[in-house]
C-alpha cells in the first residue's frame, strides 16, 4: 500500500505535499478563509460542524485537481479516526436542551452529534459509494490506524482510501491529517504518483509534521 499524498490542517497551519490555499487567522477564521480561497462552491459547508468542516476541507485540498474527481465510485473507502468523537458538537447540542424554560433541541446541531457524519460529508461531496467508517482511539496511535486501514482493504471492492485523524475539541481547536492511500506496492522512482509506503513510521512522521 502506498500513501499518494497527505494534508495536515490544524487550527493554525496547513501542511501538505499538495498545493495549499491561502488562509488568514487561526481556528474557525482559518477554516473559513481557506475554504473561500480554495474557490469551492459548496453552500453546505457552512452548515457543517467544525469536525466536518476540518475533515471536509482537508480532503478538498488532498483531492483538488485529481483525475476523475466526482465520477461516482465504490472502490474508495473513507476511514477516519479521532479521540474526541463529536464532543465539540455534543456540547453545542447540550446548550439547546440545558434550560427547561427554553427547550428547543436543534435537529441541525443534533445530526452532527455523530463523529461519522464527516465521512458521509466526504462521500456525498465526492460520490463515493464505498465503505465509510469512524473509529475512536485514546490517542493518534499509528499502529491501530495502520492496521485498521490495511485490514479494510480485505474488502474486495476497496482499492483506495481517504483515511486519517480528524479531531476537534472546540470550534477553534482542531486537527485533520488525511491521507490518500492506494492498494499498490510502493516503488521508488515509480512513473505514476510517487508517494511513500503505508506504514507506521510514515504515518507517525506525517501525524507529527
Amino acid at each position: 500500500m502506498t500513501i499518494r499524498s497527505y494534508v495536515k490542517l490544524t487550527s493554525d497551519r496547513i501542511v501538505s505535499d499538495r498545493p495549499v490555499p491561502c488562509f488568514s487567522g487561526t481556528g474557525r477564521e482559518l477554516l473559513l478563509s481557506a475554504f473561500r480561497a480554495s474557490g469551492i462552491s459548496y453552500p453546505k459547508f457552512h452548515k457543517m460542524d467544525t469536525l466536518s468542516k476540518a475533515g471536509f476541507l482537508a480532503t478538498e485540498i488532498l483531492l483538488e485537481g485529481s483525475d476523475g474527481r466526482f465520477v461516482p465510485r465504490e472502490d474508495r473507502a473513507v476511514i477516519l479516526f479521532n479521540s474526541a468523537s463529536s464532543l465539540c458538537d455534543d456540547r453545542h447540542y447540550c446548550k439547546t436542551i440545558a434550560d427547561p424554560g427554553n427547550w428547543f433541541p436543534s435537529p441541525a446541531v443534533f445530526v452532527y452529534t455523530l463523529p461519522n457524519i464527516v465521512t458521509g460529508e466526504i462521500a456525498i461531496r465526492n460520490k463515493y459509494y464505498g465503505e465509510t467508517c469512524f473509529y475512536v482511539l485514546p490517542e493518534p496511535d499509528p499502529e491501530s490506524i495502520c492496521r485498521i486501514v490495511s485490514d479494510a482493504f480485505q474488502d474486495r471492492m476497496t482499492s483506495s482510501a481517504i483515511c486519517g485523524w480528524v479531531d476537534c475539541t472546540d470550534d477553534d481547536t482542531f486537527e485533520a491529517v488525511v491521507f490518500l492511500v492506494e492498494d499498490c506496492i510502493y516503488e521508488e522512482n515509480a512513473l505514476h504518483g510517487g508517494g511513500m509506503p503505508w506504514n507506521m513510521e510514515n504515518i507517525r512522521t506525517i501525524l507529527n509534521k
Partner: peptide
C-alpha cells in the same frame, strides 16, 4: 489499545 467504532446506527456491524 481498545478500539471504539462510532459509526452511527451501523456501529454494531462495523
Amino acid at each position: 489499545m481498545p478500539v471504539v467504532v462510532s459509526n452511527a446506527c451501523i456501529s454494531g456491524l462495523c
